[in-house]
Design a protein around this nucleic acid. Sequence first.
DNA 1: CTGAAAGCGCTTACAG
DNA 2: CTGAAAGCGCTTACAG
Lengths: 343, 343
Amino acid sequence: MSLAPPTRKPTLAAIARLTGVSAPTVSKVVNGRGDVAEGTRAKVLAALEEAGYESPAHRRNSDGPQTVEVAFDSVTSNYSSALLDGILEGAAEAGAEIVVGISGSSRGPGADLDRKARRMVDEGRAGLIVVTSAFTPSHLAAFRRRRLPVVVVDPLNPPPAGVVSVGATNWSGGRAAAEHLLDLGHERIAYLGGPESAECNQARLHGYLSALMSRGISVEAGYVIHGRFRAESGISGLTALLALEKAPTAIFAGSDAIAVGVLREARHRGIRVPEDLSLVGFDGTALAEDSVPALTSVAQPLQDMGRIALRTLLRQSRGEQLDSHRVELATQLVVRESTAPLS
Amino acid sequence: MSLAPPTRKPTLAAIARLTGVSAPTVSKVVNGRGDVAEGTRAKVLAALEEAGYESPAHRRNSDGPQTVEVAFDSVTSNYSSALLDGILEGAAEAGAEIVVGISGSSRGPGADLDRKARRMVDEGRAGLIVVTSAFTPSHLAAFRRRRLPVVVVDPLNPPPAGVVSVGATNWSGGRAAAEHLLDLGHERIAYLGGPESAECNQARLHGYLSALMSRGISVEAGYVIHGRFRAESGISGLTALLALEKAPTAIFAGSDAIAVGVLREARHRGIRVPEDLSLVGFDGTALAEDSVPALTSVAQPLQDMGRIALRTLLRQSRGEQLDSHRVELATQLVVRESTAPLS
DNA sequence: CTGAAAGCGCTTACAG
DNA sequence: CTGAAAGCGCTTACAG
């Protein structure tokens, strides 16, 4: 039985003694080296956590404000801007700082990822917010090994179990959009979505499908088209829909950007919105309000999503237990000028 | 005669060898301890400087990538997004990192500023990019004292001598906009600008004035109105212009956002653009392309401006001499649908 | 995959 | 004031 030692900052050697492994092995775990048996790693990680060990890299960065890294796929969209605005707001409240980067979507995840995680530890990042990008098990491994918290906003794929994600009620939003069109008498309603595998896209699509099904309406062949969350996909999507034998009378677009593309192509072809074609967007950014006609759109609380993503990340970084691994904020259908009763 | 040693970072021990004192003594000098003879201290300091020794404290901020801080007044505009995109592009090229913040425009500059500069030094920032904000002599003092380089993009006021600024050829752009309208036969041309004191606004205004003057056309009273670079200023501006005895037949707006406001208010009032009113914007963001009718606008190369601001800052931070304290990139008038001959 | 041994750069305590 | 010696916390190279 030993007296509690004067509480000093635990050293690497102390952790070694505690776990019964050597100092070099602890060093390897701390620095995320690969050549450590999983069992050993787990044991050491637990002791590290328990004792509150801080690596030199961590230590030297932890005296200033916390720094959170944000990886966007692109920064030039109203969606990204609104989200960034919310993240910055949250950071200002928490006294944290934001480093912005573009996720190099060109390269596949690999050794690069490991380097990125290592760099982030070296620079003392509190964690990473990933926006509209894929988050794979190999990401998870690289970040978890180094105890870097991650929050994913609107992930492009279902993130591995245990990864926190923030989004909106995409399914209800999709359902609300379709119901609005159904209520206006439309039955030939198409869906022009983003990347097929994107989780938010899937949810919007299935919300739409469920609304149609519950009214006993089946979706025509060719009425569901996937692309990217960009105006170009709206242009090509409308073009494809008009080539169908039975063109739709209404379109639900998976994002405002897509809807703007539809609008542009419709104008180009002399199709009047909403007289000839009703159109609903998704996101509720300034784009929806500014376009002509103003877009009926399912609004996401993007600023709040950004703020909450930041706060959730910091909470994880402080080691707090989270209530949930998925935060979903309410969407709201905002009716403007781009939808009208079927004539 | 010894061969040049492989250039590694000089260690404390190396400095000791160089000066002929012991390592502990060098350590004392580096850490500013008092118990060192003045002569010894001087000798060691000189060697430290000469060899470019970096203390662990210093090193912790300088071994990673360079970090540049960017202060926006707001991040939710196409203007800011495009600029940020360029800045990030430049940072990726240079291996630098970007910390984004919103400049707290609410508080006046004071002791706060000094704190900010001090914090930036503590965190080892390479410098600061200021976007569309005021940069005053007291900023200059706070940053110069700490040898922190600063680059101002589209400053709201003429920055103090010696501060580097990046912008576009606003005067020529303003002149080009007005000449385009004059060429279409318009003579009653109003200017709806941003903040009166903003340098870029002044340049655009005077470009416009010079075009009118050189055709011997005088500007009606009330035809020049200042506001903010926001849609609201377009709405209020058009309202004010329509209340004049002689309403203009064409408007040159100081930004696309202002022009979009004009467009919205015009539509609201049943005024057709360009049939009843010709309209030219400024910036050439996605806003201009997406609005209906698509805006004739003076395009600024915002991405390039961002990239160049970043590169210029890093060059300063490396101590390179700059050729010029003002970098100006070319603007270009892009004619779209919002302008037509005077009928 | 593990750890004894050697080593790194720096600091401390203290004898002179 | 100075520096030989011991020590700190951590990492590296490498034998097993």
